[in-house]
Write a protein that binds this DNA or RNA. Structure first.
Lengths: 195, 195
DNA sequence: GACTAATTAGCACATTTGTGCTACATTAAT
DNA sequence: ATTAATGTAGCACAAATGTGCTAATTAGTC
């Protein structure tokens, strides 16, 4: 069940602190921000949040609040039937928050802002953000990021006897065959912000 | 400059704690995990991390470590010229970590796992995750999620005199015109994990 | 209106935890 | 080899902080 009133207010304060990568609040911080003159009410509501599965409390540890995915992430829903409104969905398939975590890329990866329409056939549009997992090699057919000459391009990778072939996914553009390409890595995923 | 050795090790410990939505470490936690028998070395390395812009230290506050985007997010790069290897990029356009933050969706939004190929023309493929910003209305041409009958579909929205028209972006499928559709919201963005 | 459950106030206490300071060890440079 | 810079150890202290308990207040129910 969704928290209400002061309980909700306290949860919001906590989530806010975590989202800004800041230090979690102390009981006294929460009391102050929520307008209590004692830490009891805070602990009272924290217990409710813990019972509802939104947080976990660590005993005898300062700022010992742990946020559950339920509180921070966006729920991923599978099938919804018309009878049940969205509000009633209790068992989402999971939660998504960090892109890097979802895509399974490590610390040393990076993202590129795509320019141009050469990969629209693969569902990669102008302005999309592609995530690159660094690697020196690639398998045939994988989408990769590579440096050709002075610019970075995203293309589909193939190895031929004449060198590396980089194919666009748009009939407007022909393939590039070169031995000079420097492979940056393979595309692990895409994020697009609509309009 | 990238941190090395013990400094790097300490940063990794901190990032790990934050990524798991857990409580940030105390100086003594860090000393223990990094293998120090005193908090001095820890403070020594934390200062270096702070000078390098990876963290911020709050004075007189327990667990007062704040992580900068540089430490947690994936850098978004724009143009890279061949002369400079990726490692040397110092000024990325920004950092991306939380999808919801990047897309600008609030707490009450949700995500749907797309099934089918009816929107491939809009770059939305089978298995993609679409983020839905809840709203009861939509503008002509916006991509929306709606409930028709017993299932949820993602389509492009148009308002006609015969009711709501939901168009697929795939010549295989015709438009749906109905007065019974329940609009869930508009699609704020897409995330795709490759292969 | 009476009664019960839910919520908030107030406060003392023991740990936890950041801070300050001095001394020791290790590495790098000359 | 000497010297300086870098990195560690140890410890005392004051403040920050979770915990326990009792009483007062408010909201909900019959």
């Amino acid at each position: 069940m969704q928290p209400h009133g002061k309980t909700r207010e306290i949860l919001d304060i906590i989530v806010d602190r975590f989202k800004n990568h800041g230090t979690p609040p102390t009981l006294r911080d929460l009391a102050k921000e929520a307008g209590f003159s004692s830490t009891w009410p805070v602990r009272y509501h924290l217990n409710k949040l813990a019972e509802a599965g939104y947080i976990k409390m660590k005993k005898n540890i300062s700022r010992g609040i742990e946020l559950m995915d339920q509180a921070t992430g966006v729920p991923i829903l599978g099938n919804i039937s018309a009878g049940r409104p969205i509000e009633a969905i209790e068992n989402p398939e999971g939660y998504i928050d960090s892109v890097a975590d979802y895509l399974g890329v490590k610390n040393d990866s990076f993202a590129l802002k795509v320019k141009g329409d050469s990969m629209i056939g693969a569902g990669i549009f102008d302005g999309d953000i592609v995530f690159v997992r660094r690697q020196q090699t690639a398998d045939d057919g994988e989408i990769v990021a590579a440096i050709i000459g002075d610019e970075v391009t995203v293309k589909r990778f193939f190895l031929t006897d004449r060198g590396i072939e980089l194919r666009a996914e748009n009939p407007k553009y022909g393939p590039i065959i070169t031995k000079q390409a420097q492979l940056l890595g393979r595309i692990a995923g895409v994020v697009r912000k609509m309009r």
